[in-house]
Design a protein around this nucleic acid. Structure first.
Length: 492
DNA sequence: ATAGTTGTAAACAATA
DNA sequence: ATATTGTTTACAACTA
């Protein structure tokens, strides 16, 4: 498979990806997706191959089967050219002129600065030859690669959506300030690659003013919360309170948008995203609370401060306050890891790290379920099921957060067992801004929980291996570790 | 089938 | 009297 082939794949694939709608079409499901952001012209061939049912809201799927289907689907784009399923994506000999050119001219989209740029890889390759070899060995056409491919598609799509909204906002701002609405977002172009631009066009044309969107607009059938915001919901697509506004009531489709990943890195990475996008963070309340507390200067917060942290950090928690606040209180009381301490200024909550670690489930690394949870937690309504399946076994384990979008960043954390937060607050700058990049190196930085080497630790170690960093310091107390990196300061 | 985890809802008490 | 805080129970969804 040569670059051009891949490009083709991307094209094809991107035409489909926005697609709950595509899925509906194919399966006759009506998710009441607003189609404004779906391309109506995604390749039929593609849609026919998508592991459709599994993409819908991530419910009741059979990971293995999905994986197989996903694989099959993606393979359908590649095998035609490859002929042999085991032929590496990039053949050393380069079976097409273009690929040959790309690979050996010293430039390759997936190679730069001596590193493999495959999402999450970052393997060092001295030269192109070595890189090609690496590429063939490590990123051949398999479950993992295909899954990663899909992730990347989603990443691109989400970014496009976000971009279009931001552009729109900018235009509205400029309009408001009586400036000339600039040339229609020059930055759109490059991104079109993935979606053929359809998203952008409609998205930015659609909404008048940057004042939010018609409630029913591009909004996919974002089923409230649980469903995972679905790519589209990433920014303000949830019109409003799910259970209330829709009369849906407390739907408990806890298909898990929780669980997951190292909060710290995820949040640091995407704090802006979560701040603005009405997306439920893929973390448990406990994780979030813990994070909030640990992030505070004294590592103790009053209930109200915790509330504030939630609302400050997550657009999602700016609504339904009764619900999540209740949940927060519930969690504080329920989990032994949260200790209430009488303070001068009243009662504050602290985290008993030992307890927190205790409460964590035994060993889940690589668990398909976990992966599934995490993925669905991302809100990839359309992506998740098939994806998770693929990931479960292929383990997207090493995606690098530094190069991903919020969602992808989440995905990328799949390698970490659960909603871990032990890598707490590292990446939040003291000025409250978010550090845009987070290397695996940073990741490993916060393994400060030493009792019970959980999979987390394991996983982090694995990341460390990648980056060559080793931080398995036996901290005297997590505290120190935290304090060092702790910004204390919040966003805003 | 079961136990554990998580989220939601709600009742209730204590306190500000 | 009311709101906030905190505890507890119940239940649903989900997974291992």
């Amino acid at each position: 498979m040569c670059p051009s082939d891949l490009q083709q794949l991307w094209k094809e694939v991107s035409g489909v990806q926005s697609s709950e709608e595509a899925l509906k079409h194919a399966e006759g499901l009506d998710l009441s997706t607003n189609s404004s952001n779906s391309t109506s012209a995604f390749p039929k061939a593609a849609s026919a191959h998508i592991p459709l049912h599994s993409l819908v809201n991530g419910q009741s799927h059979t990971p293995k089967r999905d994986r197989a289907r996903l694989f099959e689907w993606i393979s359908s784009f590649t095998k035609a050219d490859i002929g042999d399923e085991h032929v590496p994506l990039y053949s050393k000999s380069g079976h097409t002129p273009s690929s040959h050119h790309e690979e050996h001219a010293g430039s390759h989209p997936l190679y730069g600065h001596g590193e493999c740029k495959w999402p999450g890889c970052e393997a060092l390759c001295e030269d192109m030859g070595q890189f090609i070899k690496h590429l063939n060995n490590e990123h051949a056409l398999d479950d993992r690669s295909t899954a990663q491919c899909r992730v990347q598609m989603q990443v691109v799509q989400q970014l496009e959506i976000q971009l279009s909204k931001e552009s729109e906002r900018l235009q509205a701002m400029m309009t408001h300030l009586h400036m000339r609405p600039s040339e229609p977002k020059p930055f759109n172009q490059p991104l079109n690659l993935a979606s053929g631009g359809s998203l952008l066009k409609r998205d930015s044309d659609m909404y008048p003013e940057g004042l939010g969107h018609p409630p029913t607009s591009a909004a996919a059938p974002i089923t409230p919360m649980r469903q995972g915001p679905s790519v589209i919901s990433s920014s303000s697509l949830h019109s409003h309170s799910h259970s209330h506004s829709h009369g849906v009531g407390p739907i408990r489709r806890r298909n898990s948008d929780k669980y997951c990943t190292p909060i710290a890195s995820e949040l640091a990475q995407n704090c802006e995203f979560y701040k603005n996008a009405d997306v439920r963070p893929p973390f448990t309340y406990a994780s979030l609370i813990r994070h909030a507390i640990l992030e505070s200067p004294d590592r103790q917060l009053t209930l109200n401060e915790i509330y504030n942290w939630f609302t400050r950090k997550f657009a999602y928690f700016r609504r339904n306050t009764a619900t999540w606040k209740n949940a927060v209180r519930h969690n504080l009381s329920l989990h032994k890891c949260f200790v209430r301490v009488e303070n001068v200024k009243g009662a504050v909550w602290t985290v008993d790290e030992v307890e927190y670690q205790k409460r964590r489930p035994p060993k889940m690394t690589g668990s398909p379920t976990l992966v599934k949870n995490m993925i669905s937690g991302l809100g990839f309504g359309s992506l998740n099921a098939s994806y998770q399946a693929a990931l479960a076994e292929g383990s997207l384990s090493l995606l690098s957060p530094s190069m991903m979008s919020p969602s992808a960043a989440s995905l990328n954390m799949l390698h970490v067992g659960h909603d871990d937060v032990s890598s707490t607050v590292e990446q939040v700058n003291s000025n409250g801004s978010c550090s845009p990049t987070l290397s695996p190196h940073q990741y490993s930085h916060h393994v400060h929980v030493k009792e019970e080497p959980t999979d987390l630790e394991e996983d982090i170690r694995s990341v460390s291996l990648l980056s060559g960093a080793t931080h398995s310091l036996p901290l005297p107390s997590d505290d120190r570790d935290l304090e060092e990196d702790l910004p204390t300061e919040d966003l805003e």
